[in-house]
Structures are given as structure tokens and as C-alpha cells.
Design a protein around this nucleic acid. Structure first.
Length: 642
DNA sequence: CTTAGGG
DNA sequence: CCCTAAG
């Protein structure tokens, strides 16, 4: 790595020193050794950029992050506790629509606010949203860009377009974030875009990283620096891209790039989003067979560009640049993340698309911050468990945030409404980012998930594979990673499942139950059930040995009958006996189950028998147990008690 | 491991 | 159903 231009420090200085908010980095124009300068600009009607006035700036400051635009996403990187708290304190009311802004916060204390302001400003001004936005660049740059843009258009005309993709797991992310609610049009677009990638959480992360990096990238790159500086004078499209300075490109250009990169068109006009996607594609190709290895935590990303070919592209430079960028990141990430070469640092932001992104970027951004240690993680999990018990913890995400100091947290505001805090969880050696949700499940993974997975195998598989791919830090590890896959899937699937289910935890169960019900009929008892626990349910057992919740199995009348018989024969409390004799064929009914069921029967029988003649029927969904049986149960119960 | 109970 | 404390 050679000279670094526009390092964090530089930026900080910028922030502190000048009233100007920096939105657009002059990456291409940066001279080595010169700090990156950002200028706040406004896009005027004709698409030209107008430097922000002091008033505007002030306005921004006053805005305090209340962004009304649609679908804006702001990401704050928190490097320190202070910052975290700061953010927490501040309300981020962002309602946006497809904008995404990322703010970098230096580890030291640079006011998080600034970054936000940056974003908000940009959004407010419409920079991100307008199609014709021209990056604020040098004249030469502008020219170049325009040219490039034209060229790209021409060149890319023939390219295939895939307007929309079938909704899939990705949606989950959006749904999670209330995407739909905000702005449908935009969101739809976004969704479309997201879908393909959603499967790959990691991509998201990568995207973030790249994105994040982008602004600073020029400064970072060592090897390319020379070229960069040279390029600075004469921006060349490829060059620009190589630098990953997508910032300078107009939306159209970005879209083109996107198309070139992913082979399909994008309707998204969100610059940030586009940049991200592109970067993602370049860095981590999800779909690209040529997998690059990315060492998540650290350094290295050997990546290849996806199919940049189409466009002028990103060519080699891109790769290098990216790498360089990564490298730069690497150190920081390495520091905090953990020295483990394993690079367990894969981050999955299943639901929280952005969150994950944030996180990753955060890592990079904040050198000081260290990734949660394993121990820490454990603590966290513990905390979570506690949380369940303690409600106080639950809703106070913010508090938690502040409370957990050393931890790096990413906060993402999606759709402007919710601030999501994520935490890292380690699964099978890989770390996964999990959203902090109030209703975090218990430590135990649910089998339901598996069921879901099975049902949506296609989606899930894709996801899984994608995830896996991404997760793999190094080629060699790929193979080994498979082991982790399960866990990964689990984590990944969760979000997905949510998607399908519409968000409630319970959904999963319901879905499964449905399956069960279908196969359940009484006769099954005879032998079918006996076949085995897993199959019957239709829920494959989880390979990894991950515990999955027993699939909910409704008790059939026959089972109840048998149970009653068993009780009468062997007596209540002899569950193991009963199980052995009467339920030998039902492997899925354990003695505990019998006991529980009996308890329920008793309850219902006593509750209901006193009632009227028709008392058989229970109001609720529970199965109607014939009065006879209930009577018998009562009888037995009384007998037992005696 | 089997039971009982609480969750 | 899950989890756990007790025999």
C-alpha cells in the first residue's frame, strides 16, 4: 500500500474544519497526499450540480436526520462507544425510498451526526434520487463521464435485460425493513434488484464494504495509486471504475454498469444502491461462477470481476483496486474482528440487508472497533437469553447498544423507520450477524426452519449455496465450510422464513404444522408413523446436528384413545410403559409427550365435563375430543387420585 | 433415564 | 412443545 490519500483522519479534519459537508468525494481527482474533499451539492433541474450554500448546509445541520424522502437508507458506522450512544440518542427518522446513504464515522469521535448530515443532505437535495445527477467533479471529469455514459449506452444496448425476477427470499429483507410500506414503486424496483442477490447475504456485506470503501478507496490503494493519480487528471471510465469511484458516475452510468455487471437491467435509481450492487458484483460475484475469494475479515479479496466485460469496465484495475481497498480494510477489520485466520467473519445479514452491510463497512471504517470476540459473543447470547426474560432489555435496543461498548454495532435505518441493531453470533465457527430482535428465539434453532427450508428448498438452496459461497473465505476453506453450512443456512434461512411467513415467529410453526396435519390422520398410527420421526413430518432432520424443535404434531384421536387406554392399563405416570406398549409405533411421541398430553386431557376433561351436555366441543382450534374419551379420562384421573 | 411441573 | 429439577 502506498500513500494513502484521504484517510479517515483527513476526512475528519475536513469535517471539523470546514462548514462544508462532503458528499461527493473527488476521488478521481485526488492527488496523492491530498485529502479527499467532499462537497455538498444540490442537483438543479437541469441536472447540474450546484454547490451547497451555507444556508443549505445549515439547513442540513438542523435537519437532524429527519429525512422524509422515500426509502432512504442511512447507515451509520460506529466506531466507538461514544458514537454509538450518540446515534442512539439521536432519532433517525428516515423515511425514504430508495436512497441509501452511508456515513463513515471515524473511530475517534467524529460526530456521527456529520455523516448523517451528509446523507440527509444528499437525500434532501435530491442528489441520490435524480436520474440526471451529475457527480460533482472536475470539468474534465464531467466530460469524461458524459462520454462514458454515452458510450456505455451505445455499447450496452444489445445486452439482455431481465426486468424482474421472481420474488424470493430476498424479499424478506425488504419486508423486514418495511420496505413495502414505504414506497411501493421504489421498493418494487429495489426488490427486483435485490432478489437475485438476496440469497447472498454476504453479498450485501460485501457491497457495503465496497461501497464504503469506495469513497476512500483512492486513497488507499497502493499498487494502483500511481495509475490512480495519473488517471485523476483524465478520468477514464474504466479508470474511474477501476478506482471504484462509482460515486462520480451518473445514475445512468451506474445503471449501465449494473447491467453490464449483472446482465440485467435495473430500474433502481438510487445511486448508492447501484454503486453497491455494482461493487458487489465486482467484488463478490454472487452469480459469477468465478468465485472470488474474499476474506471477509481481513484482507484479501481475491476477486475477479464478474462479468464486467460487457462494459468498459472494470477490467483489471477494478480487481486490483478492489483488492487494494480490501487490503486496506483488512488491517482494521483484522484487528477488531479477530486475528483468526479462519476469517470466520462472514456476516450474514439475513433480514437486515443493510444491517449487514453496515456492519461490514463499519468494521472497515472503524479500525478501532474490534469484532466481537467469541467470548463476547457468548456473552451476547447470554444476554439475549436474559433478554428474553428481561423485557427491559428487549425493547431497549438502543440502550443495549450503548451498554455494549466494545462491540461494534451497526445500525441501519431501513425505510427510515426502524433502527436495527445487529449482533454477531457465532455459528459453527462462522460469525453471523443477527438482528437484535425482541423476540429472539431461544438458543435452540427451530426445526421449523428446516421444514421451511424443505418447503422452499429451491429458494433456500440457492440461498444456502450462495451463502456458502460467500462465506467461504478462502478457496481451501470452501470445502470445509460445508460443514458450517447448516448453521449458516439456519441463520440465513431465518430471515427467509420470515419473509414467507410474514414475519411472525409463529409462522414457521404454522407452516410446518400444516404439513403435519396433512399426513397426520389417525391411521398413520398403525405403521406409517412408526417409520420415523423425521420423515413423517416431512421435515428433514437437520444434518448438522443442530437441534431443531420437534415438529408440532397434533394429537390424533387414535393417539388420544391409545393414551387413555394406556393410562387405564398401566396407570398415569407410567408414561414410559405406556409409550412402550401403546405407542411403540409412534416414535415421535415421547413419554414426556404422553404425560403432557394427559395433563391436557385432564385439564380439558375436567373443564369441560362439568359443562353442558354437549361439552365435547372445544371452542378453539383444538381437536374435539369425544365426550366419551373425556369422561373416561376423568374417570381414570379420579381413579388414579384415589 | 424417567417423572413432574413450570413455561 | 421445551426445559429442568428431582428421583
Amino acid at each position: 500500500m502506498g500513500t494513502v490519500v484521504g484517510t479517515v483522519e483527513d476526512r475528519r479534519d475536513m469535517f471539523e474544519g470546514s462548514a462544508q459537508t462532503m458528499i461527493t468525494p473527488f476521488s478521481s481527482t485526488n492527488q496523492i497526499g491530498n485529502p479527499v474533499a467532499y462537497k455538498l451539492v444540490r442537483v438543479s433541474g437541469d441536472g447540474s450540480l450546484v454547490p451547497a450554500t451555507d444556508e443549505e448546509i445549515l439547513e442540513v445541520n438542523e435537519t437532524d436526520m429527519h429525512i422524509a424522502s422515500d426509502a432512504c437508507q442511512t447507515v451509520g458506522y460506529l466506531a466507538t462507544d461514544e458514537e454509538n450512544s450518540e446515534i442512539n440518542e439521536t432519532d433517525m427518522h428516515i423515511a425514504s425510498d430508495a436512497c441509501q446513504t452511508v456515513g463513515y464515522l471515524p473511530a475517534d469521535g467524529i460526530p456521527s451526526r456529520l455523516s448523517r448530515l451528509e446523507s440527509s443532505k444528499a437525500i434532501n437535495s435530491g442528489l441520490l434520487q435524480s436520474d440526471n445527477v451529475q457527480p460533482y467533479t472536475d470539468q474534465s471529469n464531467e466530460e469524461m463521464l458524459q462520454k462514458v455514459e454515452q458510450e456505455e449506452r451505445l455499447g450496452n444496448v444489445h445486452e439482455s435485460q431481465i426486468p424482474s425476477t421472481p420474488p424470493d427470499a430476498n424479499i424478506q429483507c425488504s419486508s423486514e425493513n418495511n420496505f413495502f410500506e414505504e414506497d411501493q414503486d421504489h421498493h418494487e424496483d429495489l426488490l427486483q434488484e435485490l432478489i437475485p442477490f438476496s440469497s447472498n447475504v454476504q453479498n450485501e456485506c460485501d457491497m457495503n464494504q465496497s461501497d464504503k470503501i469506495e469513497p476512500c478507496s483512492n486513497a488507499e490503494a497502493s499498487p494502483k495509486e500511481t495509475s490512480l493519480s495519473a488517471a485523476a487528471q483524465k478520468p477514464d471510465f474504466s479508470r474511474v471504475r477501476g478506482e471504484i469511484c462509482l460515486d462520480n458516475l451518473p445514475i445512468k452510468a451506474l445503471q449501465e454498469t449494473f447491467r453490464a455487471t449483472f446482465g440485467r437491467e435495473t430500474t433502481v435509481k438510487d445511486k448508492t444502491w447501484l454503486k453497491r450492487r455494482i461493487a458487489m458484483g465486482l467484488i463478490n460475484s454472487c452469480d459469477v461462477p468465478i468465485t472470488n475469494l474474499r476474506v471477509k475479515d481481513n484482507k484479501l479479496v481475491g476477486n475477479q470481476e464478474k462479468s464486467n466485460n460487457g462494459t468498459n469496465a472494470i477490467s483489471n484495475d477494478m480487481g486490483d483496486d478492489v483488492r487494494a481497498t480490501k487490503v486496506k480494510d483488512a488491517p482494521s477489520s483484522t484487528d477488531h474482528v479477530n486475528g483468526h485466520s479462519k476469517a470466520s467473519g462472514n456476516i450474514l445479514g439475513g433480514n437486515h440487508y443493510y444491517a449487514s452491510d453496515d456492519y461490514s463497512s463499519e468494521q472497515r471504517a472503524a479500525k478501532r472497533v474490534r469484532k466481537p470476540t467469541r467470548r463476547y459473543i457468548e456473552e451476547l447470547s447470554e444476554t439475549d437469553e436474559k433478554q428474553q426474560n428481561d423485557k427491559s432489555m428487549i425493547h431497549s435496543k438502543d440502550q443495549r447498544l450503548s451498554a455494549e461498548k466494545s462491540e461494534v454495532r451497526s445500525i441501519s435505518v431501513s425505510s427510515g423507520k426502524r433502527v436495527t441493531v445487529t449482533r454477531m453470533v457465532s455459528l459453527a465457527g462462522s460469525e453471523i450477524e443477527v438482528p437484535y430482535v425482541s423476540h429472539v428465539r431461544r438458543s435452540r434453532p427451530r426445526e421449523n426452519i428446516m421444514a421451511l427450508m424443505g418447503c422452499h428448498s429451491s429458494c433456500l438452496e440457492d440461498k444456502a449455496s450462495a451463502t456458502e459461497r460467500n462465506l467461504n473465505l478462502s478457496p481451501s476453506q470452501l470445502s470445509s465450510d460445508v460443514v458450517n453450512r447448516d448453521s449458516v443456512e439456519m441463520s440465513a434461512s431465518r430471515p427467509v422464513q420470515k419473509e414467507f411467513a410474514t414475519s411472525d415467529d409463529n409462522n414457521e410453526e404454522h407452516i410446518i404444522s400444516e404439513v403435519d396435519q396433512d399426513m397426520e390422520p389417525e391411521h398413520t398410527e398403525s405403521s406409517g408413523n412408526s417409520s420415523d420421526d423425521n420423515n413423517n413430518i416431512g421435515v428433514p432432520i437437520m444434518q448438522g446436528g443442530t437441534l431443531r424443535r420437534k415438529h408440532h404434531r397434533a394429537w390424533t384421536l387414535s393417539e388420544v384413545t391409545k393414551l387413555v387406554e394406556g393410562v387405564s392399563k398401566y396407570g398415569a405416570g407410567k408414561w414410559s410403559e405406556i409409550k412402550k406398549h401403546s405407542f411403540s409405533s409412534y416414535s415421535y411421541r415421547t413419554s414426556v409427550d404422553l404425560k403432557d398430553k394427559w395433563r391436557n386431557l385432564l385439564k380439558s376433561s375436567f373443564a369441560q365435563s362439568p359443562s353442558h351436555s354437549t361439552g365435547n366441543l372445544k371452542k378453539h382450534g383444538s381437536m374435539h375430543i369425544p365426550t366419551q374419551i373425556l369422561l373416561r379420562v376423568r374417570e381414570l384421573a379420579e381413579k388414579q387420585s384415589q
